Simulated assay, not measured.
Amino acid sequence: MKKILVTGADGFIGSHLTEQLVRRGYDVRAFVLYNSFNSWGWLDHSPQEIKKSLDVFAGDIRDPYGVRMAMKGCDTVLHLAALIAIPYSYHSPDTYVDTNVKGTLNVVQAARDLGVSKVVHTSTSEVYGTARFVPITEEHPLQGQSPYSASKIGADQIAMSFNRSFETPVAIIRPFNTYGPRQSARAVIPTVITQIASGARTLKLGSQHPTRDFNYVLDTVDGFIAVAESERAVGEVINVGSNYEISVGDTVSMIADVMNVDVEIETDDVRLRPDKSEVERLWADNQKALALTGWQPKYAGKDGLRRGLHETIEWFVNPQNLACYKADRYNI
């Protein structure tokens, strides 16, 4: 791979991925969302030697001209730019179609025209909806249970259609619930940690019974790189998950135990999804990733989750990092 473009490089997973690519010696162009503050998002917090190595492109994934310009001279594109918050998709679904579907179309259209060697498009476990069988393989039916998941199903189909129609070299990575340092407090693990770290002992949460397959961010990043480097991944959808299922309630208990506190949980109705929109169960089958790319999680199982939570909590309780969050407010 000559040069790699990472879209969404300013975000949670994107910033970790960008840093790891630089550390591995890749020539990286980081596509960040343009803003008048010249902010690079989480990349602003990267070590100075990482930032000096980056070719940063500020633009908007919804703009086909900017996307094409960013992709010129790049051999590989890791496409992470997306709107991902499920509650926000309930009242602003149009922005999800523009960003997730049209943004993906911009990427694969430019990739086709420019002759890019590989596009790794980012999907999500949310496209499966509530599991009809577990563990969930890549053949599981797709179910749009929120405008967000519907937009990601559309984006996935656009990406793969270019592979089938034009032989554009597209691979789809489907991460399950990634967690770790820098994650938005719209997700349950940072919500719990930031509330506890800010002194709360009665936590405001949504549903506790749904289960998730939590994947530590460094494992997810390794999955992206493994898919990018694998010739066998082209034309395939590949789950990246820990193959371990745990309920939200049990996850909260584990976090409280690691942080050595006793907590109570108060259900906050505003944090509840509509009944038919809630994804009740997620549990990844990750055997295809191992077979095609050699990837397997390093933070697997209960012990791996606990170890990942230790590292996540250590980052969040740092006062400088905690100050980036508004723990007393619901982050939609």
Results as ranks from 00 to 15, higher is better:
309 L>M: 10
311 E>K: 05
319 P>A: 12
312 T>N: 08
294 G>N: 06
327 A>L: 03
305 L>H: 15
288 K>H: 03
312 T>M: 09
293 T>W: 07
308 G>A: 14
297 P>V: 09
300 A>R: 00
297 P>F: 10
293 T>V: 08
291 A>M: 02
315 W>S: 13
327 A>W: 00
320 Q>R: 15
309 L>V: 12
298 K>T: 06
307 R>Q: 15
302 K>M: 03
289 A>W: 02
294 G>A: 10
317 V>P: 01
291 A>W: 04
324 C>V: 08
286 N>W: 02
297 P>I: 05
313 I>D: 05
301 G>I: 11
298 K>G: 09
326 K>M: 05
309 L>F: 13
301 G>E: 04
324 C>E: 15
317 V>R: 03
294 G>S: 12
288 K>N: 07
296 Q>G: 04
317 V>F: 05
296 Q>T: 10
314 E>I: 10
318 N>A: 12
321 N>F: 02
310 H>L: 00
326 K>F: 05
309 L>S: 03
304 G>W: 01
292 L>M: 00
306 R>P: 01
322 L>S: 09
305 L>C: 08
302 K>E: 02
315 W>Y: 15
299 Y>N: 14
305 L>T: 14
317 V>M: 10
302 K>A: 04
292 L>D: 01
291 A>E: 02
288 K>V: 10
288 K>P: 00
298 K>L: 10
327 A>K: 04
292 L>Q: 01
320 Q>P: 11
306 R>T: 11
328 D>C: 06
316 F>S: 01
294 G>I: 06
